[in-house]
């Protein structure tokens, strides 16, 4: 399994709306905790270690060098 870089979410605008709405009434702390849980839930769904490593690297702050 390799990290999928192509669009793969059905109805992206609907998904994004649901994501944002799901946190609407949460405090910042609650939202952060929810985000961490979400990462773990989705990581478990993926399972493959190499893919997860690739995803972690992609998500890290990139060195913004002009």
């Amino acid at each position: 399994m390799r990290l999928n870089h192509q669009p793969n979410i059905a109805d992206p605008d609907g998904f994004y709306e649901e994501l944002i709405t799901s946190q609407r009434d949460l405090s910042d702390e609650q939202a952060e905790l929810m985000n961490a849980k979400l990462v773990l839930i989705l990581a478990n769904q993926i399972g493959d270690r190499a893919t997860l490593t690739e995803a972690l690297q992609l998500a890290r702050p990139r060195s913004r060098q002009a």
């Binding site: 999928n4 870089h5 192509q6 669009p7 793969n8 979410i9 992206p12 605008d13 998904f15 994004y16 992609l58």
Partner: peptide, 10 residues
């Protein structure tokens, strides 16, 4: 850089 994220830009 990521094509997958572009449909989410609104």
């Amino acid at each position: 850089t990521e094509v997958f994220a572009r449909p989410l830009v609104n």
